[in-house]
Design a binder for these strands. Structure first.
Length: 557
RNA sequence: UGGGCCGUCGCCAAGCGGUAAGGCACCAGGUUUUGAUCCUGGCAUGCGCAGGUUCAAAUCCUGCCGGCCCAGCCA
């Protein structure tokens, strides 16, 4: 999808900077990168970064790399790299190069030696705890480690032995020699390399030492000749360090780091750690549970890549902390699905209706449109018979005047079929309505009357003898708190009604052959997609339709 | 409170000295065999606050106020 296909043409301060750099010929071509750490699944917040980085490459005829930031083997896993690759592809973005920070372990090591030789880095033997003490506080400067003035020769020797695996974890640390009194704590001799005898998913046991993020990221960017290194706000304080390293080391380029605010969505969590906890504690069914804000969860829920890209274009990119309302995301998916979803009829909570004056055993074939505004999507034939199911909510014993559906004495249109009038109803021992008795007007076949009389309501239905049974999963927000991450225990704010399982829904028979990649609109109830994992026939509700009645109903209560 | 960053409509967001775009939400109408879609109209004499500069300030200056981030050998 190129810029002209996007519904909302994105423009933001980063794109302005890039346009300026192109106009001023500072750069001939743009190179960006999306640098996830493979320690979890991608979520909607990453989608913002993906759309930004890959979107810029697309729109400015540049390139974007996918680079796994895999410098911490204890937390990372091949399962995550594969999932991330799938998600980026699913969003329909193509990377120029697929890289790993670990591809650069050797040059990174060589650059570190260069730094030591320049007297810009030293091997420290202080313990982690001592280093913390020496670092000082936000208001007090730190103090120098006794090892700060170790000779270059000794540093070189110690670092070589660190690399050779002579020492245990934590014994030594390679630090940049910058300024222990800097008001920016990141500049108080930050760690460059730590000893960590861990098996790496790509480099195996080749390295007993691993480089830190601040040191790795800028050099990786430079090696790939990234022009604009886009990251989130919390790295703003790291930019002086990013620049310091690239100023001290001879790399082919010096990318510009630009920070933007991460996406925050109301009523949801976007923290890999917390999402992982939901999975581990079994609050959800896995990373791809349709309630999860992960790319894989949204996919299984029935969101389309186009809708997510549209959403990312709508929310903008700035440096301001903000919370996006869920309605924006829902608007994006509704807009997309309204165009592409195949209309069908499905009754979620069935209420039996017997049409008294309809001939026993008769079955009529009626024609229904697959999309009300799109002729090209064709029609289908549906069966009508004496006993049908309608939605429970479409009948009220004591209906208010504005209720345009069924009640004794009221007439409605059965979509594509006939006008029916409710004459009576049957209750069970609990006083629950279990059946409606109606009569139909044979003159209204197809849904219009020769006498021109109007009915206010049109409801959906399915023929009892032709219907198929299916399970339908209805989803609601996962949290009841608008900002669960701000609470002391976000798991206390889980929405107990985030999932409603409906077992005996009655659907049009054609849905038995529903394709896993086809989006359906069950008329009047919402957009659905067949679950990609279930063995039985199961549909997930992506999002409801806008419901003015529900809104009015709520206001009246 | 040392440093960094941010404050334009309920939620986002344009704007870059010339007199407040747009989207979502909301409200009011119209069309409609989905109370859907679609269409029309409404929605900041105001840009965190207070001063100042200027013919002219959301845009420049000064001072306040409020919010976010940083003391991992995580990223």
């Amino acid at each position: 999808m190129s810029a002209e296909d996007e519904k909302i043409a994105p423009t933001n301060f980063i794109r302005n900077i890039i346009q300026d750099d192109l106009d001023s010929a500072k750069h001939q071509a743009i190179q960006t990168r999306f640098p996830p750490e493979p320690n979890g699944y991608l979520h909607i917040g990453h989608a913002k970064s993906i759309c930004l980085n890959f979107g810029i490459a697309e729109d400015f005829a540049g390139k974007c790399n996918l680079r796994f930031d895999d410098t911490n083997p204890e937390k990372e896993d091949i399962e995550y790299v594969n999932a991330i690759i799938d998600d980026v592809k699913w969003l329909k973005f193509d990377w120029d190069k697929l890289q790993y920070s670990s591809d650069y372990f050797q040059p990174l090591y060589d650059y570190a030696i260069e730094l030591i030789k320049q007297g810009k880095a030293y091997v420290d033997s202080l313990s982690a705890e001592e280093i913390r003490e020496y670092r000082g506080t936000l208001t007090e400067p730190g103090k120098a480690s006794p090892d700060r003035n170790r000779s270059i020769e000794e540093n070189l020797d110690l670092f070589a032995r660190m690399r050779a695996g002579e020492f245990e974890d934590g014994k030594y640390l390679l630090r940049a020699k910058i300024d222990m009194a800097s008001p920016n704590i990141n500049m108080r001799d930050p760690a460059l390399y730590r000893i960590k005898k861990a098996h790496h998913q790509r480099t195996g046991d080749d390295w007993p030492i691993y480089p830190m993020y601040d040191y790795t990221h800028c050099i990786s960017d430079a090696i790939e000749e990234i022009t604009h290194s886009l990251c989130t706000l919390e790295f703003e304080d790291h930019r002086p360090l990013y620049d310091w390293v690239l100023d001290e080391v001879k790399t082919p380029a010096h990318p510009r780091q630009i920070e933007f605010a991460r996406l925050q969505l109301k009523y949801t969590i976007t923290s890999k750690r917390k999402l992982n906890q939901l999975v581990i504690d079994n609050h959800v069914d896995g990373w791809d549970d349709p309630r999860m804000p992960t790319i894989s969860g949204l996919r299984r829920r029935g969101y389309t890549p186009e809708s997510i890209r549209d959403f990312c274009n709508r929310i903008g990119v700035t440096k301001k902390d903000s919370f996006i309302e869920v309605a924006v995301l829902e608007n994006s998916i509704r807009e997309d699905l309204n165009e592409r979803a195949v209309r069908v009829m499905g009754v979620l909570r069935p209420l039996k209706v017997t049409i008294k004056n309809y001939p026993d055993g008769q079955v009529e074939e009626l024609t229904a449109k697959n999309h009300p505004q799109k002729e090209e999507m064709g029609t289908r034939s549906i069966n009508f018979s004496k006993v049908i199911y309608i939605e429970r909510d479409d009948f009220m014993e004591d209906a208010p005047k504005k209720f345009f559906r069924l009640s004794v004495g009221r007439e409605v249109r059965l979509r594509y079929a006939y006008y029916i009038t409710c004459t009576d109803f049957v209750k069970d021992d609990n006083g629950e309505v279990i059946e409606l008795i109606c009569s139909y007007d044979p003159e209204t076949k197809g849904g219009s009357s020769p006498d021109g009389r109007k009915v206010k309501g049109t409801i959906h239905w399915v023929s009892a003898e032709h219907a198929i049974d299916a399970q339908v999963n209805l989803y609601d927000r996962l949290f009841t708190h608008p900002n669960p991450a701000s609470t002391e225990d976000f798991s206390e704010h889980l929405n107990p009604e985030s999932l409603t399982v409906l077992e005996n829904c009655k659907l049009e028979p054609a849905l038995a052959d529903a394709r896993i990649d086809t989006h359906y609109q069950f008329e009047r109830t919402g957009y659905f997609i067949k679950d990609s994992k279930a063995d039985n026939l199961m549909f997930n509700r992506t999002v409801t339709l806008r419901d003015t009645w529900a809104k009015l109903d709520k206001q009246n209560q």
